[in-house]
Amino acid sequence: MSEERTVTEADLQAYADGRLAEARLAEVEQWLAARPEEAERVTAYRQLGDELHGVYAAVLDEPVPQRLERAARRRWRWRTAAAAAGLVALGGLIGVLGDRALHEWRAPAPAPEAASFVRRAVVAHATYAPEVRHPVEVGADQEAHLVAWLSKRLGAPVRAPKLESVGYNLVGGRLLPGDGSPTAQFMYQCQYGTRVTLYLRTDAASNRETAFRYAREGNVRVFYWVDRKLGYALSSSDISKEDLNKVANAVYQQLNP
């Protein structure tokens, strides 16, 4: 028998968690033996802990949603993709340029006309990017035909940029209605199934260039810009703004070699 040291609330918590050192355990048990109400309380704590485990155990066995697996692998993909293309050193520079473009633009809300363009790009992305069986009208296996066809319908030479350097492959494209004239969408996919779409329209009103502009609608992020006769909007609902910015830079550089 030892002299009874004061048993603290922290001791009782540790007792409920089964974390008391053996010597102390005996003392606390002795203390509890004389206090049935306290004993009942810590027993209830223990039981609640067990029940808590039981309630949430099933989550561990649930299949992991794709979006989470993609999020876990994201940066690794970027790093390897960039390294493969020897772009690591360039990355910083591109980032700076992208940031500058963003700064330059931090101006008024998009003009109504641009807002409608972004809106259409977002709707087109949200409609077709999740599509499993028919994501595109014409597949990448007929790229020459796809590009010729869209160029003809849009009334301007259109190109599908090659984005392998940032980890994305062309899936294909489709023709879409726009405000008064047809628009087009190219779809790209990375090896984990993440998709980005590039939405295009002819911007006959002006022969100008703008910096990248950024918008977000719901969970869809968009970079959009005008380059000579064409307006572009690059959308994604799965990748971060920074990653999307990198893809936008790659698109821009492909189209302006």
Binding site: L52, Y56, A57, V59, L60, V64, L68
Partner: peptide, 29 residues
Amino acid sequence: MSDAERLVELIPRLRRYARALVGDRASAD
């Protein structure tokens, strides 16, 4: 093991904790 693989491995634990923390499945994910 790469960082990505270790992260993937920990997803179930993160999901379980998040589910208990915020309640519904979509917000937790």
